[in-house]
Design a protein around this nucleic acid. Structure first.
Lengths: 188, 188, 188, 188
DNA sequence: TATGAATGAGAATTCATTCAT
DNA sequence: TATGAATGAATTCTCATTCAT
């Protein structure tokens, strides 16, 4: 694995487990089995690591999500696929889930600006689906799209959050159908 | 105002604006117009400030929320009141909103344990309402209560989050009715 | 008991147990059951407490020691009485023993100067006895008095030290005769 | 000189002159001509510096002392060599002498426990010589070994203490023979 | 005198970042 | 590129001392 990827993976693990502020460069370097200084050959500073995680992982998330719903016609089916995809990504890498969950809320203004850029595409997917649902008459005409998107992401966030913080003891997939139904009703 | 309250208020402002890690004791002391050391006459350490904010504010939140829905019969009405109450608290003190939104998600285990205690009562309110709705036949019998609660809090969190981070330019109350309806449908 | 004495007693206890640097004014005030500020009505500062302990306790020590050997003719008997007196004082108040033992060695120059003044009289007693022994022909003519005094105090110090630090489990008096004999031989 | 040694040497000087509590990390770093933080690459904390001084210096002391009396038959001669060695070490580094003299008496329990370990070997040397003297019939059969050891170390301690605190104006070696004789008599 | 809340200078320690090798 | 020792600014917390009541 290229050193860049090794470091990024290590960073996700450490930041996911300790949080950005408590994750020390030394820890990440240790985990990646490189020297502290090496990290600075691939990232300009600690913050850059976090931003890069968002950039790459969200990009990846979005690409895969788009690919998965490509060709699917049914709006509700799309919703279900997206939720399942979300849970899959988060289940497969709980550390990443924590990073995205927790550190997305950086109070640092600069960082939030940098992150928001990548969030847009992330938001776009679900908004497109919602719009599609409205166009098809499945969702109500006057559905407030932002509100719907906030409900969608907020709910998934909270579900993941609970799952992550309580030790990932149950299977997230168990709730996909139920959630799909709840969203569909809420948006109708 | 008692010095304890002065310091707490200052802490909410500073932590809300800068985040816990970037809020320096000096900043809080300055804002409260006391010496650094004075803070330690009222709080045992920095973390204790944060935990105290949670304790006091969530307690207050819960007490007021309970009072507001007391005597109200209609489940949907209760839901609406709770949402309005939530938005009111957050609107009136966006800094507090940020503290609760952002810092609640600390990956620090010790802190989360301390906070969870207070969160229970906070969660209880909505779960009680949801249960009540099920009993009355307004919500579906097999509604997954935890999931419903997660949808409720996740959504409000996300709405507040967006509102808080984008500069609080619009009126939160505008969406109370819409959200009430969405939840009601989702839970039916 | 006058407040001055109460505070002094408390200070000896706390400083004896924790050492000067780790003894907090708050601890001493607590032990004396007075407010922190009250201490400053009787002592000008923390250092003054320590110096005062030396002044009063050494004075007392010297006065009593002098009284005890008054009228005694036999040099060896005087030696024995002094050792017994030393052990008695230290046994009766191990905290005081610790203070005198440990804190006498303050690296702080100013303080040492202040303390040395009181030490002189303390040293004088044994030097007088040694001189007397030389005059009587019991001790050798060319005995180096300072060296003899250093042996005397150094030895007692070390015995007390061991006794104090190992928890005062045995009776100091058991060794008085043996020590008297050893000193007498060493000085002969 | 390895940085570890540079720092240790600087620490001995500064702690010797100011005492442990008044020696600031900044002072030691300055003296060693390194940054404050560098010290923490070699020592885990301030106390560790002190303990390390004890460990290394006492080890060194013991090794050299053992080597010096190796092969010497005469007990009195051994005694003389040990005293001379003691004075030599202390004369050559009065700051070290102060550290050992003063800081060894820390009332801090943890530290004393750590130090006592190293002291054991230090005590052993003289006890071995004393035992040897008894076996050879030079010292009296019923000599109380601990008491003798306490007299030996207490006396040397006190002599060094006086010498160190009064400015090291005279030559310690001048008293070696006299002391040897005094001990020999005392133990006979 | 007695109080104890308030003060703020001071100190140990941490850790992101640099840079000579 | 890779290293990791060195850096030193930055930060939390302590505690002797003061002073208004």
């Amino acid at each position: 694995m290229p050193k860049f990827d090794v470091i990024l993976k290590a960073a996700i693990k450490i930041i996911g487990q300790k949080g950005f502020h408590n994750a020390k460069i030394k820890d990440i370097a240790s985990e990646a089995d490189v020297a502290d200084g090496t990290i600075y050959n691939y990232f300009s500073n600690k913050e850059d690591i976090l931003v890069t995680i968002f950039r790459i992982k969200l990009e990846d998330y979005v690409n895969k999500a788009k690919r998965e719903i490509k060709g699917v016609e049914d709006t509700e089916k799309k919703l279900e696929i997206l939720i399942r995809h979300h849970f899959k990504v988060m289940s497969e890498n709980p550390d990443l889930a924590k990073v995205l969950q927790v550190e997305l809320r950086q109070p640092n203004k600069e960082m939030r600006t940098k992150v928001r850029l990548h969030l847009k595409n992330y938001f776009n997917i679900i908004e497109t689906v919602i719009n599609d649902g409205i166009a098809k008459g499945i969702f109500k005409k006057n559905l407030h799209i932002h509100l719907a998107r906030e409900m969608y992401f907020g709910t998934l966030d909270e579900v993941i959050s609970t799952w992550v913080f309580s030790g990932q003891h149950w299977n997230l997939n168990a709730h996909v159908d139920e959630l799909t139904e709840m969203f569909t009703k809420a948006f109708s």
